[in-house]
Design a protein around this nucleic acid. Structure first.
Lengths: 110, 110
DNA sequence: TCCCTATATCAATACTTCTTGATATATGGA
DNA sequence: TCCATATATCAAGAAGTATTGATATAGGGA
């Protein structure tokens, strides 16, 4: 995770619809949701949703998998963890080993 | 932490200088840094830095304390933790008790 | 009080981003 | 092949944001 990547990720999360999408996908967990279902759930038009999903995907916070005619999206926990690690780098007086394990656990692989 | 607060925080972190400032303050830990020192370290003009510090402070990611003529800024770990908690709310199939303790530990009170 | 240092605010310009209607691409079924 | 569904792309107008020069406020020292 480099700085530009982190900036893209934070920009992705700083818009209302995209924040809703990410949190929805966090809740959906490994099941994920199709683009259409996400749009229906949040009441967002098709092309707007597509654009916003594209922004989130390019930022590394979500990933997608084609499934027939639909595309299923998932929260990308590796991306999320990488973002946190970047943000917290060198925290705690340059002793990141104190925080890093905590960050690593935040994978929600629960 | 409500949604608008979270949006403000992510918007704050989605700008290059502000991301630098926050990471610098994460490194600085409890010591913090004065506004002037932050500006000097990052090579940013006085009024630009003041505006950016204001954005970060209003978003709840940093806090400040006047110290004579200077103002010392600190990363606000409670704000950071609240943001993560909001983002990860209802993760892991609606069993947040699995993640919340991890998030709570991420206070970098190390 | 007067001045110096440290930080904040203001107004304007430049820049970026969001949304939308229209349209294109991709997949599956008949 | 032809059509229907699902998603993506494009161009343009609207809205929001960053930076800057100038200026204001706040605190400390003489």
């Amino acid at each position: 995770m480099d700085k530009n990547h982190a900036l893209d990720a934070f920009a992705a999360l700083s818009q209302s619809t995209r924040l809703d999408v990410f949190r929805l996908l966090i809740k959906a967990g490994d099941t994920g949701m199709s683009a259409g279902d996400i749009g229906d759930t949040l009441g967002v038009r098709q092309n707007t949703m597509s654009a916003n999903l594209g922004v989130l995907a390019r930022s590394g916070l979500i990933r997608s998998m084609r499934e027939g005619r639909s595309i299923r999206y998932f929260a990308d926990m590796d991306g999320m963890r990488g973002l946190l690690a970047f943000l917290m780098e060198d925290c705690c007086g340059g002793r990141p080993e104190l925080c890093q394990p905590v960050i690593n656990e935040l994978a929600c692989a629960c």
